[in-house]
Design a protein around this nucleic acid. Structure first.
Lengths: 327, 327
DNA sequence: ATACTTAATGCAAACGATTGCATAGTGTGC
DNA sequence: GCACACTATGCAATCGTTTGCATTAAGTAT
């Protein structure tokens, strides 16, 4: 059904090798302009599409990079996908997307047919999985808050960012500061949580964690209202991300709580929406463009030179102070 | 370097065929439990990973579906990606993502190594591309506002939605109603635009289009302020999507314009953020979950039965009336 | 005219799986 | 003890490319 190089060869009166050299581009300089022209002509007429499977079977390259994401939910994630896809596309590669929030152990998840893996915000327990890939010569680059010793990474130092955020809340006078986080992200190694705990300890303040079931705004909005009812009102809240912060914001406003006077609020990530609230939201802005660019650079550097030393880059986030935490 | 079935065969003392039958699952019932066990054991020890390229070369299946998106920018897109990826994953398939907003004609875009294509909000001019794929037996399913005669589709009737929205604006008393749209989406066949034009014509009102360079909120926010300065204030605005509507909302509030009293506002899509404005935003909610589910159903139905008749499903969106358009 | 280089092309062996068909082994009925 | 069915396995062809090496043809220096 599909056109093969053999058919083209027959029609053009040349050998399959010649067709391959013309069409793959790999040996095009060896071919005389006239045959080249003829082959291209025939290929076009027969609507030839190379069989990528056959090609990658022999070349060992798929020209596809896997993008592993912990979640694909918010505009923040969309932005990451778009930035990465764009870079990969410019390198002539496709993007295979995989959400790893659910269990990865099942089914086909281990069978990657890609040239490399970009992992965004993937927790440390995946190290075990990645080791298998690396042993097979499959580059893995991690991007996000997590620092891995085994793989190349570009990390945004959200621990430092968290410290700045919580110290800022303390400095504006908050004394009962809570940290809100979704259940799945609530584990050791969550840089924001660690930073929160550290900053509170150094200030001699007690910690309190508010756990939400998921990252949806509505969840945070509901949970914060219940929480306030049961435990009273904190005077500052640091949120794992902006989505939750916006949910909290909305939930509190519905209770008639004034932000920032009653509760000061700081989110994390720096998504666009934080600007678009009545009381603009303070947040820890991640340098997303830079992160995605560098992650791709690292990946392609390793593809070009598989034995280079493992490299880690740490980027500093920036505290964007807005009205929600100023008083 | 990588383990092959041949190596496993040698270690386990069986033939490659046997190993294949065990590992591919396709002939597992033919194999005695004891050899089966032994092969699995060896495969595990040698950390076997099947070579997908080789497999799909002979089976003709890649177990990968391409998801074509016009844009990947907002939480709306993230939601689509997540829903689709989830469905495909449940079918054991991977998701290859491709943003087609930029030119598709260049480079590798035509060489798809997938089992099918899901196209979300992809404009009609892609018909030409899809025809090539279909001729090769590659199923294409379109989802979104567009109705295609050539391929299976599940369309949200945004024309009907647009009509309802604009008539609603007229009904609450607006007389100078503008339609805001980004430059790229502003072409014949944009269902929302067509609906706007139709509704205005039937009411005997003049049309006016406000063109923004892109879908970012900040763009709409800037453009609307310039627009108001140059042409004065409309008393109603219907926006191509919620992102723009939120940008407009913000831009107008900065001008001191009151919503909905001075300007009534309706967006489109029904993203979560519309609820989280001081003046909640009216919007045309798309039944996203249903759409994604049905699109995948159509795709798998066609994969199972390639010659079935082309099927189209039309879903009705819903006008969510909120404060931004009630007066 | 000969030897030697260079350019253009073909031959055939991979790449790593799957699968139709053949075959060896094992039990069953008569 | 023979024919037969059935189960478990192996053989070898095949999928559609790429690519190292051989070969032919043409040009060039001696």
């Amino acid at each position: 059904m599909r056109t093969t190089i053999r058919q083209i060869a027959k029609v053009a009166g040349v050998s399959p090798s010649t067709v391959s050299r013309v069409l793959s581009g790999r040996g095009a300089h060896l071919i005389s302009p006239s045959t080249r022209e003829r082959v291209l002509q025939v290929a076009k007429e027969l609507e030839y599409q190379p069989n990528i499977a056959a090609r990658s079977l022999v070349t060992g390259r798929t020209h596809t990079i896997a993008l592993w994401l912990n979640e694909i939910y918010t505009s923040f994630h969309a932005r990451v996908v778009q930035l990465i896809e764009d870079h990969l596309w410019q390198h002539g590669d496709d993007t295979l997307i995989r959400r790893v929030g659910r269990s990865l152990l099942a089914s086909h998840a281990y069978t990657e047919h890609v040239d490399g893996i970009l992992a965004h915000e993937c927790p440390a327990y995946l190290d075990r999985v990645w080791k298998v890939f690396q042993r097979r010569g499959l580059p893995v680059v991690s991007a996000g808050a997590y620092v891995h010793t085994q793989v190349d990474y570009v990390a945004v130092d959200l621990f430092a960012g968290g410290l700045v955020a919580v110290r800022h809340l303390i400095q504006v006078g908050c004394r009962r500061i809570a940290y809100m986080v979704n259940a799945e992200s609530c584990h050791v190694g969550d840089a924001r949580r660690d930073a929160y705990d550290t900053a509170m300890r150094e200030a001699g303040l007690p910690t309190e964690h508010i756990i939400v079931p998921d990252q949806r705004r509505v969840a945070s909005s509901v949970v914060i209202r219940e929480y306030v009812q049961n435990y009273g009102l904190p005077d500052g809240i640091f949120c794992h991300n902006d989505e939750m912060a916006i949910g909290v914001y909305h939930g509190l406003r519905r209770l008639g709580v004034h932000i920032p006077d009653d509760v000061a609020l700081v989110g994390c990530d720096g998504i666009e929406d934080t600007e678009y609230l009545e009381v603009p939201l303070s947040t820890i802005r991640q340098p997303l463009e830079q992160m995605c660019q560098l992650a791709c650079d690292l990946l392609y550097a390793r593809l070009a030179e598989p034995n280079r030393e493992t490299q880690g880059i740490v980027l500093q986030p920036e505290l964007v102070m807005r009205e929600s935490s100023l008083r």
